[in-house]
């Protein structure tokens, strides 16, 4: 087990950077294709990763996305610096959103991001400290 190969790459993303929003997810998708992951699995990883990336762009200052791929699983960890989520249970509820009118006009704020991540990942852990930031870790088995 110890010599099982692990691919790891990190991406830095910034809050409010709507020009580059989604690029990390696109690059991650391309890497997964090169490794030969099944299209259906890539699709799930893409949706989950994109929603997490957009939440950083909308609600946090900056984040590091870390992608890890082993022959067993894809693991994506999004660690942001930002205001944090006061009530994670509430945030996870479909339809719950604190998005401003401006954000809603851009087409976000349906409150479906976190529930979508949960539906598409096999496991999801969220750890958030108000005033510090949020860490989201999801895994999809291969």
């Amino acid at each position: 087990m110890s010599n099982e190969p692990v691919f790891c790459q990190r991406f830095e993303i910034s809050g409010k950077d709507f020009i580059n929003a989604g690029k990390a997810s696109t690059t991650i998708k391309a890497i997964l294709r090169e490794i030969g992951i099944q299209p259906a699995v890539i699709r799930r990883a893409a949706i989950a990763c994109y929603e997490a990336e957009m939440n950083v762009v909308l609600y946090a200052r900056k984040a590091i996305i870390e992608l890890r791929v082993t022959p067993q699983e894809i693991r994506i960890r999004v660690e942001d610096e930002g205001d944090g989520i006061p009530d994670v249970g509430l945030a996870m509820q479909p339809g719950y959103s604190t998005a401003s009118d401006e954000i809603r006009e851009m087409g976000f704020g349906a409150g479906m991001g976190l529930p979508n991540i949960k539906n598409n990942a096999d496991t999801l852990q969220i750890h958030s400290v108000v005033g510090r930031g949020t860490t989201l870790e999801m895994a999809i088995g291969l």
């Binding site: 099982e4 190969p5 692990v6 691919f7 890497i31 294709r33 090169e34 490794i35 030969g36 992951i37 791929v69 082993t70 022959p71 291969l142």
Partner: peptide
């Protein structure tokens, strides 16, 4: 085509 048909090898190659 992926870098390798074998996923472990493909991961090595991507590294």
């Amino acid at each position: 085509a992926p870098l390798d048909q074998d996923i472990a090898k493909a991961i090595e190659k991507r590294k």
